[in-house]
Write a protein that binds this DNA or RNA. Sequence first.
RNA 1: GGCCCGUUCGUCUAGUGGUUAGGACUCAUGGUUUUCAUCCAUGCAACAGGAGUUCGAUUCUCCUACGGGCUACCA
Length: 469
Amino acid sequence: MTNSVFNVRFAPSPTGELHLGGARTALFNWLFAKYNNGKFFLRIEDTDTKRSREIYTDQILDSLSWLGLNWEEPLIFQSERLNEYKIHIKSLLSSGQLYHCFCSKNDLSELKDKGHFKYPGTCRELDHNDIKTRLNQGASFTYRVRIPDGNTKYEDMIYGSINVDHKELDDFIVIRSDGSPTYNFTAVVDDHYMDISHVIRGEDHVSNTPKQILLYKALGFNVPVFAHLPMILGADGKRLSKRHGAAGVQTFREEGYLPESLNNYLALLGWNPGTDEELFSSDDLIQKFNLSKVQKKGAIWDEKKMHWISGQHMMKTGTDHIIDKLRFNDPDWGKGSSISYLVSIVELLKVRAKSLSEFIAQSDYFFNSPLSYDQEALQKAWGDNSVNTRMQLLAVNLLTLEHWRKDYLQNIFELFIKEHGLGLGKIIMPIRLAVCGTLNGPAVYDILELLGKDETLKRINVALKELPK
RNA sequence: GGCCCGUUCGUCUAGUGGUUAGGACUCAUGGUUUUCAUCCAUGCAACAGGAGUUCGAUUCUCCUACGGGCUACCA
């Protein structure tokens, strides 16, 4: 079981975008490969021609590269390995490990409806001539595996020892009536040809594993090591899906989360480093990640924690980097502004915005005068006309200020309140409202300094005309 | 129905045959801040239930309950 080769793969089927569960499986495979100096491959399982779409392959690849989970060439498509499948079917057939099944889909599903969950073995021991006759008549058929008596045991890197009696296993289909191979067979052949040493996948595959091991052995292949990852669940404890809202990687990208944040949280769901640390860059994860610390039970996706992690990453991320990302997410962001202006804005918002979208929303008043005033804030800060009088006076003071710097601004404000016997809030709140349209944000002096004298006075004058209402 | 897997605060988790069962997120309160955020402090909050083993079980065993997965000519 000790391997010197570490080849792993992520094998999505292109029937939808990359969802969180898939992303985590990919991440864990990637981390395992990187840590062990192994190789991380990608295989597109496109044998379900009815549901597979090329567009999804592109989307999945796109999401994966956004997450930074780079894979080895070549990219494998199952549909391109049809020849190998044929060869191995032939060999299984000739050694009697496969048999023709002529049962119709309808008959079988009727049986199931009646409570017979297992294939009854109708065609398991068909007479040779019988088969020939039916074949000559052009009857449609599938190939099933003749499961031998006994049991299959394997050592899961996460779940430990798992033992299944063959009595529990169905003679499952490997070739459909249209001649196409099924998953349990293709996965085995592919993993063999790709020289996969460790199969790391979702827990939903645990019960497939004995079937696949049987196939590995029947084909004379080496059996890889298996590791099954617990599921990611929604708040209702059910497997995470579109029903739960944001379940696709693209959504998180669009909402302005950094890939490192997603990786970080994904890793923390069902794994812990054995210390109290929770914040990791992807490179940190490579060093710290270990399959043996992976949980057995499913973990519920917690939007709030994801958001917190994202905020933490934002604070640590370099300002230049954030600016690049912001411009990438919204090409119009900061258009026409100097780079130093943008740097100052991002510096101010870094501890406040927890995602790129929040940056964009919260930075709006640095580029545009407020279109409207927050109602609640208006009540609080500019309730009556006495504020107008006050602001008018203050505006005059500001007008005379020559050096528009935050320390001078602060000076003016402080003199003003002393002179009029007011609390600071009495002038700062209305200013905020006039300039930002909201009461929340960075220090008012910082905002005013950045905005500049003209813009500040302009906005105050607009507010003086429009408020209170 | 059968088989497999699981069960520590609301959530993610640490942990041990004897602990005040620890941390993080959330929430609440207080401090810092002109506001918000940050930061700091404090607080609320958990070993699913029942037997057994044991001097002693959250920890080991069994049973029950609950949850999840599989039981496809999907992957």
